[in-house]
């Protein structure tokens, strides 16, 4: 199981674990999937969103990333999806520095990662169904699989009666659900959720958290960026707290304490 996830997240899937370069010695610990090594990100000379951040993510973990606005949570998410490149340090995923991914490999990496974006990032001229199906289409999934999986996941997030509405016609909460469904439909190995409950009412919030838990139990690593104290406290999972671009605490079964 462990090895499966390791290789699944590895793009080349070959010869990776055999290599023993000095900076990859830590890979001896096979349960480490993601490594942040002294990562910094400067947007300009004066604005440093992230400063010298280091932590490891282990197989099957559910991590909450908390901190006030501007703490660097979203930047961290963007670094992990290769939307931005670090200006210092390295991010290793399955032993591979993701800032060194070739242009052609990038799409393959992104297909292994599901992201629930803070601003949803839904395709505006497409219906709910098409938006979710798109994530499978780019993975070259056969039509039969798309026909089977998409309605299921739409049902799971409770949008069956909205399946053929355009995303522009949806409310904030509904868009959020579409974004979640799209992030989950291709069974990603890593799920990054950037404020996934920000637009939801309390009942829906718990439904979504429940869903994330379920996904996590099936072996997907979940990284939840949130500033919802109630949610984070009740999770009883690892909490990484950030402030001003630095990690100020990293606790197992942590609490939101800022």
């Amino acid at each position: 199981m462990k090895n499966k996830i390791m290789t699944d997240l590895d793009i080349k899937q070959k010869n990776k674990t055999v290599k023993a370069e000095p900076d990859k010695v830590k890979k001896a610990d096979e349960s480490v999937v993601i490594e942040f090594q002294n990562v910094s990100k400067k947007y300009s000379a004066n604005i440093e969103a992230i400063h010298d951040v280091s932590f490891n993510v282990l197989i099957g973990e559910f991590i909450s990333l908390v901190g006030p606005s501007g703490a660097g949570k979203s930047t961290l998410v963007k670094l992990l999806t290769c939307e931005e490149k670090p200006t210092g340090g390295k991010i290793l995923v399955a032993g591979r520095d993701i800032s060194e991914l070739k242009k052609k490999e990038l799409p393959f990496f992104r297909r292994k990662v599901g992201v629930i974006f803070q601003d949803f990032k839904l395709l505006p001229k497409k219906t709910v169904y098409e938006n979710i199906a798109f994530a499978l289409e780019v993975c070259d999934a056969p039509d039969s699989e798309i026909k089977e999986k998409v309605p299921k996941i739409i049902d799971l997030v409770g949008l069956t009666n909205r399946a053929f509405s355009f995303t522009e016609e949806l409310s904030g909460g509904e868009k959020q659900r579409v974004s979640i469904a799209r992030a989950l439909v291709h069974n990603p190995k890593l799920l990054i959720a950037d404020e996934p409950t920000g637009n939801l009412d309390p009942v829906s919030t718990w439904e979504i958290i429940e869903l994330l838990f379920k996904i996590n139990k099936q072996g997907t690593i979940v990284l939840l960026a949130s500033h919802d104290k109630e949610v984070v406290d009740s999770l009883q999972k690892r909490v990484i707290t950030m402030k001003d671009g630095k990690v100020v605490s990293d606790q197992q079964k942590g609490k939101y304490n800022l």
């Binding site: 799409p107 393959f108 992104r110 001229k125 798109f134 780019v138």
Partner: peptide
């Protein structure tokens, strides 16, 4: 006018060709 669409497609993992 549809540059946002292109960005999203790429983030979801579509290849340049797609």
């Amino acid at each position: 006018a549809r540059s946002e669409e292109i960005e999203i497609m790429k983030l979801v993992g579509a290849s340049d060709w797609y």
